[in-house]
């Protein structure tokens, strides 16, 4: 009987510890959200979306150029990264097996684990050095390098889930393999593939480290791919570590916009994924 009580006490203690661990873990999460909403909303205004940063000391201004720059970087990173990721995944599913496919999978996993700042350094030595200048293009390449392994692996997962009977049905109709993969397999898995793409876009939308010495950032408007360009995460970074209250407020507003964008992308991805 005595043993039983000790065991029950231990049991309850263990449960309590797990609950406490969960609560401790959720506390910073809630605090981050709390500050983000409180500071973000109180600092957000229409100017944020229409103005560019004001010079030091002046109040007001916004991050319109950062929002535009980020969109442009994401667009070009996607143009570079999505075809490689998606078609690479098609290869892995259609010509599965073999040492080459295994090597590719492994490389993708390893590449996904490379710190994003290293990706930035590589894009720097591949593009910034030869072109003799920081550029939006280099930033887009750095982001696409981050995107490729993510898209490749998630797309492959989705393509693998398409039943083999569909492939057979199409081939038995005399449809060539390439049309079968692109028009039957990829189309059947499109929802899952789009989910993966949205998650990858969300991921690169928040990246700042790889942009530090590629896109560099810009206080002004730029539409030129060969010039430095502003990006929202970079602006949040430089405004947060600056010693001005006014800039901190802009950084909070930027953070709120960035988080809302990313959550929307994540939520959208999940909704699309769930419907399939």
């Amino acid at each position: 009987m005595q043993g039983m009580t000790v065991r029950h006490i231990k049991n309850h203690a263990a449960r309590a510890i797990m609950l406490i661990a969960t609560l401790i873990l959720l506390t910073p999460l809630c605090l981050i959200f709390f500050h983000l909403l409180k500071m973000g909303f109180s600092s957000l205004s229409l100017d944020f979306f229409t103005q560019i940063p004001k010079p030091t000391g002046e109040s007001g201004g916004g991050m319109a150029n950062g929002i535009f720059g980020s969109s442009l970087l994401i667009l070009f990173a996607s143009l570079l990264g999505l075809p490689i990721g998606v078609l690479g995944a098609v290869y892995l599913t259609e010509f599965n097996g073999g040492r080459f496919a295994t090597t590719i999978r492994f490389s993708a996993d390893v590449l996904a684990g490379v710190p994003s700042i290293i990706t930035g350094m590589v894009a720097y030595s591949l593009l910034v050095l030869p072109m003799k200048g920081f550029s939006a293009l280099a930033g887009a390449v750095a982001l696409s390098l981050i995107m490729i392994p993510i898209v490749l692996r998630t797309t492959e997962e989705q393509l693998k889930m398409v039943p083999g009977t569909l492939r057979e049905a199409s081939l038995a109709l005399g449809v060539p393999l390439w049309r079968t993969s692109l028009k039957v397999i990829l189309v059947s898995a499109r929802k899952g593939v789009i989910t993966g793409i949205l998650l990858a876009v969300a991921r690169i939308a928040g990246e700042s480290a790889p942009l530090l010495f590629t896109a560099l950032g810009n206080q002004f408007w730029s539409r030129n791919l060969t010039e430095p360009i502003a990006a929202l995460p970079l602006q949040i970074f430089s405004f947060a570590i600056a010693p001005y209250e006014e800039w901190h407020r802009l950084a909070w507003a930027g953070a709120l916009v960035l988080v809302v964008t990313m959550f929307t992308l994540n939520l959208g991805a999940r909704l699309i994924g769930r419907r399939s």
Binding site: G88, F95, I118, V122
Partner: peptide, 29 residues
């Protein structure tokens, strides 16, 4: 079947890009 051969080569080169990127990364660094 020619088209399928091209399809295989094209997708294989996209997949191979991942390995190439990794190797270039290490080489550059």
């Amino acid at each position: 079947s020619n088209a399928d051969r091209i399809f295989r080569i094209v997708t294989a080169s996209f997949a191979g890009a991942v390995l190439v990127i990794l190797l270039i990364m290490v080489y550059e660094m």
